[in-house]
Nucleic acid binder design. Structure first.
Length: 1272
RNA sequence: GCGCGCAUAGCUCAGUUGGUUAGAGCGUCACAUUGACAUUGUGAAGGUCCGUGGUUCGAGUCCACGUGCGCGCACCA
């Protein structure tokens, strides 16, 4: 079995290792590490865990002879060989990580050694399999967080996070795992835990970047034989001919030059050298096969001369070396020590030059260096979102551009664009769903701002009555309280909730800002603040006065746990198994009935049958007195259409007090003047009432058992069967909803509104169909359209809305009673009570209703209560009010799960109060799910904090990843890989900009924008036209709310057209700065809605103010079809040549020349073709070279002069091309031979097809000619 | 039971009113890479567009039926 040993120099002594070869390595490695430890000030730590602490609990030799096939890396830690030949390793090491970073990551992280104490968090963990452990620690996460951790490390406070330790492990494991499915066991350091069993197989890396490195590593380190690798350890591998000369002008010089590959220097190594040499004393150089990677030693605080000595030694041993030094914080000077030249004699690594003032630079951190660079005026090598985002957001805030009044060139007549933010609940922290919402909203709003509109995004939060109260009560109960309401009382609990809500609110608002949301914070609203409360009271009062709100006795949804009613929309139905009992009330009772709720049967007052059911016809109208479980029941047999004669016995026991359906029958009977009784047997406390006979006072469950056993005793139970039943549960408290009759406040949706001639239902319907009062500008469109249908369906089945809640956290109902001792709970008590609705009435004895309003009552008024209704609805001093300017709002986004809860109520409230729709367009998005398609939720523990993602990848990357591939109304999944890809895209944009801006500083801005540019070459024309197309398309797509496609189009242009084609051509043709800047500036604007931060940061290089208020570009550049065809041909030619070279396994540098015959448009693009294919000589010619077979691109033939070509394989290539062409020609011909097609298809389509055929035929002819030549 | 959605490359998803040889990202394989970018470049492999039938000159796209998955609503006595 192949093993990888992860060795620990500190822990091993050579004597432990029987294998000589290995022992040599170990010696060397240990020496190396010691040197490393010494130099890094780490030695003492190393000693603490030195050889003495090594002790193999199993008594096995540390490494069994012949077992070890790879010796890869070294590190502090421990090695244990197990009987199965697997070598378990214990790794604490930072060296591995250092190597790892050095090898694969440029600068970036330079970790200080991990202290054992800090690792305890990791060490002290339960024994879990490694993958579970990885999950437990979030290893992937930790990997991603390494940079973040490093920052903390070098800040000098040495606060280590457990993830740092895991990070080290993860890195090593991945490296090793890359070997070949080897079992690698990683253990944490610390002798205390030494006797632990290894923890199992480590999961392979998931993140692409990491994988890439491993492959790279694997390819290069794991050479074919042990000898090679062993010898590589000795250090003396670079031949004396590889000179190492000092130089002062290396690019690591003293002039503040960017460090480039600072720690990692790439040095061309003779190809035959495939070893990784180490300098045993002072540094490490790894030959990866292509490069010799040299790593300078780290001298943590050591004087430079020490390092210099090291260099000398290193140089003597002919090991290529480089060293770096850094001065203290804030200084830009970076020094390179040592030097090296590549084979061409060019300086690769600058040699050290002592600092002028004689001070010795010391190495503190690599990361700091990066910061230094960012602080300097040049663009950093990679976009570091973390370093710029907060600053940029600050600058937006202080610019005033978030407020519509603060925007430039705004007048009263400027078109407004308003969006209200769906207010996040103040129940904790934001989740990824919020990140999606903010990305959508902010992209939209920024786009509109760039179009020059008077843009307002109103931010706010929602007190979320039930959700918040439930959360706080839960927290209190988790803290040991039994019944928070009882123990704290109304005011006490409210105080707690308020406290929680305020802290949660401030957290949330900070997070919303982190997401880059360009909201007008001066208009910040809260559903529970004074202004919004005033709007709520006003609405309630008006509706009451209009007779729409009434107090009614009704069966309501009751949550025993929450001690409150809830609306139909707040119920979540779940499936569960339950028993269906079939029985008679008594022996004499003529009809058998079924139920799943036997305990409620003590409240039965009737039995219902279908009117046409012959079985029971004779009983209808009769009343039977029975004694059921010691309760005296009077059961009347009634007929009702609601009964399904085919279900069960076709007869139904009617419990008016505890079933909405039955209550309906109760009302029908009352209306028919043939009333049945109503008898409440379940109380609000979830227990049986005094009316419940023998089960009075019992819990529901106990009562059920009791009734069932009674039925059995009496021999009344006929059948017992298991059924799957849907029951409603409270979505906040989770308990099963009981139906209980109560007096509550209701909103009547079917009553005509005085003076309007319409009901609320009518208004809600009109708003999405014809528009209010038939006005099309008062019509709400819903994207995607299918939700309109759902909405209308719901409208048709709408029932009165139960408004009152027995919660404390919320708007107290503005109703006052007089002459009541306690609040009425039953129908009868409604009478004789004086009710006043509005602000507190005059006079004595008024008591306010204890209840609060459904939270959606206040949310429903959100679009206009945030804009000043009712107090500031009118213009003052001739200035239009917010309401006049910004309502109806233009656009809103929300998830489909609140379509009924919120969208509907907003339409209701707004059409009622203002006779205006709340918004013109509603964009409905789906739910964001985790990578397995599961909903994010606290209980499944799959929650992801968007802020953490932002810290790691940047806000722009998160936004782009959430918006791309996400279509309206459809759920989407969240993948970290997607964020990574988006981060790469953002970085690409950054580097494109860096390249362009480093060539030329944008000229001063002159009002009206940087002037138009004139294309000089074909490529110029092409890119300008492509950009023009892109800009138009992006506008169109955003107008259609197709953010995903807009991003795709932008990405395609940015990466493929602009970076990969045009920028490469620009390098060849030169003198493109004007066009590049022209496009870049406008491209940044197109990107800005999606990636606001990076674009703003880059835009600083343009003297054009802030990009947030830039002008959306309109670009008009056309491309003639000839030019387009010509450019396409160039591209095809380049691709064909690359392809050809790839097929022939030939590098471009080995191609002597390329000759193009019948070049046509290609003739003037020779240098471009040469540049793009990296072939030095490209020429067009009338004469074809002898004995080469060309690539055929259109009419042109391209002859590539390879060192050697096999005629037979050429023949095969041509033949396969001929076959392919023939196939398509045949298809094409048959299509055109179809008379129906020619007769009926549009002209344009036919012409296109003909052209295609002609092109193919031309190509085929050329191919056949070549084939003939080859054969002859 | 009624209604809605989804089914396209190994994975996640795009695919605008029907019109090239169906796309992207990630992943895979091979190669390259010291002057913007290893967060890179180049090339390749990979698809019966769930099935059947229909409309049409032409269907991933429209229609019907079927299959599988998901969701909503109602019923759930």
């Amino acid at each position: 079995m192949a093993c990888v040993v992860l060795l620990c120099a500190d822990a091993l002594s050579a004597n432990d290792v029987p294998d000589l070869q290995l022992r040599i390595e170990l010696d060397v490695l240990r020496e190396m590490l010691r040197g490393h430890a010494e130099a890094s000030g780490d030695y003492e730590h190393g000693r603490r865990f030195g050889p003495d602490s090594f002790d193999d609990p199993s008594g096995q030799p540390v490494v069994e002879e012949g077992r070890v096939e790879h010796c890869a890396l070294c590190c502090r830690g421990h090695v244990v060989a197990r009987e199965d030949g697997v070598v378990a390793t214990r790794v604490a090491g930072n060296l591995v990580e250092r190597l790892y970073h050095v090898l694969f990551r440029h600068v970036s992280v330079w970790r200080e050694p991990i202290l054992r104490e800090e690792l305890h968090g990791v060490v002290e963990t339960p024994d879990l399999p490694a993958d579970a452990q990885a999950k437990h620690f979030g290893v992937d996460h930790a990997v991603r967080n390494s940079r973040h951790a490093a920052i903390r490390l070098v800040d000098g406070d040495h606060r280590f996070e457990p993830c740092v330790g895991v990070r080290a492990l993860a890195g090593v494991d991945h490296l090793l795992d890359a070997a070949d499915g080897i079992h690698v066991f990683a253990e944490d350091c610390g002798s205390r835990q030494f006797h632990d069993e290894p923890r199992g197989k480590v999961v392979p890396p998931k993140i692409s970047r990491e994988r890439h490195f491993f492959q790279y590593f694997q390819k290069t380190i794991h050479g074919p034989t042990l000898e090679e690798r062993a010898v590589a350890c000795v250090g003396d591998v670079v031949r004396s001919g590889d000179r190492m000369e000092g130089s002062d002008d290396g690019f690591l010089g003293d002039r503040g030059t960017p460090i480039e590959h600072s720690v990692l220097q790439k040095v061309r190594c003779p190809p035959e050298r495939h070893h990784f040499p180490f300098d045993i004393r002072r540094g490490v150089a790894l030959d990866t096969g292509r490069y010799l990677l040299t790593l300078g030693n780290v001298a943590g605080g050591e004087p430079v001369d020490h390092v210099e000595n090291a260099i000398d030694r290193a140089t003597q041993s002919s090991c290529v070396f480089s060293f770096l030094g850094f001065e203290d914080r804030g200084q830009t000077a970076v020094r390179a020590f040592g030097g090296a030249h590549d084979r061409l004699g060019r300086t690769i690594v600058g040699r050290h030059r002592s600092s002028e003032n004689g001070e010795k630079p010391t190495i503190k951190s690599v990361f700091r260096l990066h910061s230094v660079l960012s602080m300097a005026n040049e663009m950093a090598k990679a976009y570091e979102a973390k370093l710029v985002e907060d600053g940029i957001y600050e600058s937006w805030l202080s610019s005033g551009y978030f407020a519509p009044e603060g925007l430039p060139n705004i007048t009263d007549s400027t078109e407004a664009f308003t969006v209200v933010m769906p207010p996040p609940n103040v129940t904790g922290v934001l989740h990824l769903g919020h990140a999606l919402e903010n990305s959508l909203m902010d992209a939209m709003v920024r786009y509109q701002r760039l179009l020059g509109k008077k843009v307002l995004l109103v931010p706010g939060t929602d007190h979320a009555a039930i959700a918040t109260q439930a959360r706080v009560e839960k927290n209190l109960m988790a803290g040991g309280m039994k019944n928070p309401r009882q123990e704290l009382g109304r005011e006490g609990l409210l105080e707690k909730i308020r406290e929680f809500a305020e802290s949660s609110k401030s957290t949330i608002l900070t997070q919303v800002k982190k997401l880059g949301t360009s909201a007008d914070w001066s208009r910040l609203a809260y559903t529970f603040d004074d202004k919004r409360s005033a709007a709520v009271n006003e609405l309630f009062t008006r509706m009451y006065n209009d007779g729409l709100i009434y107090r009614g006795f009704r069966v309501v949804n009751w949550s025993v746990k929450g001690q409150s009613t809830c609306s139909d929309d707040e119920i979540e139905t779940i499936e569960r198994e339950s028993m269906l009992y079939t029985f008679k009330y008594s022996k004499d009772f003529p009809i058998t009935i079924s139920t799943t709720r036997p305990e409620t049967k003590v409240g039965d007052t009737a039995v219902a049958v279908h009117p046409t059911d012959d079985r029971y016809k004779t009983f209808v109208g009769k009343t039977y007195d029975v004694e059921f479980a010691s309760a005296k029941l009077s059961i009347k047999v009634i007929a009702s259409d609601a009964v399904d004669p085919s279900f069960g016995t076709g007869a139904l026991g009617v419990t008016p007090a505890h079933s909405a359906i039955d209550f309906g029958m109760y009302e029908v009977q009352k209306a028919k003047n043939d009333p049945i009784e109503i008898k409440q047997v379940i109380g609000a406390d979830g227990k049986m009432t005094a009316d419940a006979g023998s089960v009075a006072g019992m819990t529901i469950e106990a009562a059920r058992e009791r009734v069932v056993s009674w039925l059995k005793e009496q021999g009344l139970l006929e059948k017992e069967e298991k059924v799957i039943q849907n029951v409603g549960t409270s979505d906040r408290y989770g308990d099963v909803i009981e139906a209980i009759p109560m007096t509550q406040w209701w909103l009547n949706v079917n009553k005509e509104i005085p003076g309007r001639g319409k009901t609320l239902r009518d208004l809600m319907r009109e708003a999405v169909t014809t528009g209010l009062d038939g006005k099309s500008e008062q019509k709400v469109s819903i994207t995607p359209d299918r939700f309109t249908k759902l909405y209308l369906d719901r409208i048709e089945n709408l029932r009165d809305w139960c408004l009152s809640r027995q919660l404390w956290w919320g708007h107290r109902i503005p109703a006052w009673y007089r002459k009541t001792k306690s609040l009425p709970l039953s129908e009868g008590e409604l009478e004789g009570v004086e009710i006043f609705v509005g602000a507190k009435p005059e006079g004595e004895g008024w008591v306010q209703d204890e209840d609060t309003l459904d939270t959606w009552f206040s949310s429903g008024s959100w679009t206009f209560s945030t804009l000043g209704w009712p107090s500031f609805a009118k213009a003052t001093d001739g200035k239009p009010s917010d309401l006049e300017q910004f309502h109806p709002t233009n656009w809103i986004q929300m998830g489909y799960e609140i379509l009924y809860l919120w969208l509907m109520r907003m339409i209701l409230m707004s059409t009622y109060a203002l006779n205006q729709i709340p918004f013109k367009d509603a964009y409905i998005h789906g739910i964001l799910r985790d990578k397995d398609g599961k909903k994010f939720s606290k209980s499944s523990g799959n929650g992801i904090d968007p802020i953490e993602v932002i810290e790691e990848y940047g806000c722009d990357a998160l936004r782009v990843s959430l918006l791309s591939g996400n279509t309206p109304g459809n759920d989407s999944r969240y993948y970290i890989e997607k964020v990574e890809a988006s981060r790469n895209l953002v970085n690409k944009l950054w580097n494109i900009s860096r390249f362009i801006l480093s060539a030329k500083t944008p000229p001063p801005y002159e009002g009206g924008g940087r002037g138009e540019v004139e294309p000089k070459t074909l490529a110029d024309k092409w890119i300008l036209a492509r950009f023009s197309e892109t800009a138009k398309k992006v506008s169109l797509l955003i107008d259609r709310y197709d953010f995903s496609l807009a991003i795709e189009v932008l990405r395609d242009f940015t990466w493929n057209d602009f970076a990969d084609w045009y920028l490469e051509i620009a390098k060849i043709e030169g003198e493109k700065s004007d066009i590049l800047l022209y496009i870049l500036e406008r491209l940044l604007i197109l990107w800005h809605p999606f990636a606001p931060f990076v674009t703003e940061e880059i835009y600083k290089n343009f003297d054009s103010g802030m990009i947030i208020v830039a002008k959306w570009p309109t670009v008009e550049h056309e491309l003639s079809s000839e030019d387009r065809a010509a450019f396409d041909q160039v591209c095809s030619a380049v691709i064909a040549i690359r392809n050809y070279l790839s097929e022939h396994k030939t590098l471009p540098k080995d191609v002597e020349s390329i000759t193009i015959v019948n070049a046509g448009a290609l003739a003037e693009m020779e240098s471009v073709i040469g540049g793009l294919t990296k072939v030095k000589i490209v020429r067009s010619s009338m004469e074809r070279p002898e004995s080469i077979t060309p690539i055929v691109v259109g009419a042109a033939q391209i002859f590539v002069q390879l060192p050697a070509v096999d005629a037979a394989s050429e023949k095969i290539r041509i033949e396969s091309e001929i076959a392919e062409a023939t196939k398509f020609i045949a298809a094409q011909e048959s299509k055109l031979a179809n008379t129906d097609f020619v007769a009926r298809a549009p002209e344009k389509v036919i012409a296109g097809e003909r052209q295609k055929l002609a092109d193919l035929q031309e190509k085929l002819a050329a191919l056949q000619k070549e084939h003939a030549a080859l054969v002859s």
